[in-house]
């Protein structure tokens, strides 16, 4: 934690949608307990996108799962997660289930493994709606068609009866987004939603998310390893490494004046298409002379 706590409290306390304070997630392993998230503190305001960025093992996804109450079995959490002023940690699962998909929802990286291959997409979207809002099948189906249209699936009235495999990867992610937004949640958590997609499809999905957020005012927690994606979508950025928060500030500040050496190194590492052309054979400033390395980090079994 190198940041001053100054940014931690938003200027307007009442506008805070999500307040996470001192969140620690611990997994028991054969070598004793391991903190995968340590003392993470941040807030998300209404209508804001907060980007959580980090490399693999940084704890960014575990932070998201902790907020959703979806941590793997055996994980222990401490600290506080307040959603619209209500503490979520320690609440019974049934209560969390009423929130999930309703007031808060999540989009995952791989849409194909998140959709059930045996049911039509319409049925799956409608199920979320009926589960939280009730109503007739027919009304829910209309809602599903409407939702598919809003996320840009062409000919939604006809395609609502198709199965997940009949859609392209980008369209499946659109379907996941439609499902996540069907109950108009106050909080949307997107965990690497564009990582598995081609770059042209990624730009379409990012535009769609930004547009839907403008329309609905949903607060978004956007988790990614890709700093360039964060730069285009988030108002504020939180940088994580090894479960620790290293930097937390406005996007512009993090990108124009990174304070932590790790953030600087990450920004230097991004392959670019717009800087002065580095000819092949020119070693980047991040390069260090090759030398024998330390032993590989021990593989901890946390899953």
């Amino acid at each position: 934690m190198t940041e001053s706590p100054a940014h931690r409290a938003g200027p307007d306390e009442s506008a805070d949608l999500l307040e996470v304070e001192g969140l620690t997630v611990t997994f028991p392993t054969t070598r004793g307990p391991v903190d995968v998230v340590r003392d993470n503190t941040f807030t998300l305001r209404n209508n804001e996108t907060l980007g959580i960025v980090g490399e693999s093992g940084s704890g960014k996804s575990m932070t998201a799962l902790a907020v959703m109450g979806l941590l793997p079995r055996g994980a222990r959490t401490s600290g506080s997660i307040r959603f619209r002023g209500t503490e979520l940690l320690g609440r019974p699962d049934a209560e969390l289930r009423r929130l999930r998909g309703n007031a808060m929802s999540m989009v995952f990286q791989d849409p194909l493994s998140s959709l059930n291959p045996y049911y039509t997409v319409g049925l799956q979207i409608a199920e979320v709606y009926r589960c939280h809002r009730g109503g007739s099948r027919r009304a829910a189906r209309r809602m599903a068609i409407d939702a598919l249209g809003r996320v840009g699936i062409p000919d939604p009235a006809e395609r609502v009866d198709r199965y997940p495999h009949q859609f392209s990867g980008g369209q499946r992610q659109r379907i996941m987004i439609a499902m996540a937004l069907i109950c108009e949640p106050a909080l949307l958590i997107a965990d690497e939603p564009t990582t598995a997609l081609d770059v042209t499809v990624q730009s379409q999905i990012l535009e769609l998310l930004a547009e839907l957020k403008r329309q609905t005012g949903t607060g978004m927690l956007f988790i990614t390893h890709d700093l360039a994606v964060i730069a285009t979508i988030a108002q504020r950025v939180l940088v994580m490494r090894d479960g620790e928060q290293l930097e937390y500030a406005d996007t512009e500040r993090v990108f124009s004046a990174p304070r932590h050496p790790y953030t600087r190194m990450l920004l230097e590492s991004i392959p670019r298409i717009d800087d002065e052309l580095a000819a092949p054979g020119v070693v980047s400033p991040t390069a260090r002379p090759a030398r024998p390395t330390d032993p590989a980090p021990a593989q901890e079994e946390v899953r």
């Binding site: 770059v199 360039a228 124009s256 991004i270």
Partner: peptide, 20 residues
């Protein structure tokens, strides 16, 4: 393809480099 690549504001980059 080139247009689809997410980009960091060149102005932010310039300031970062100066700072760096």
């Amino acid at each position: 393809l080139l247009a689809a690549i997410p980009r960091i504001d060149p102005e932010w980059d310039r300031r970062r480099r100066e700072g760096a």
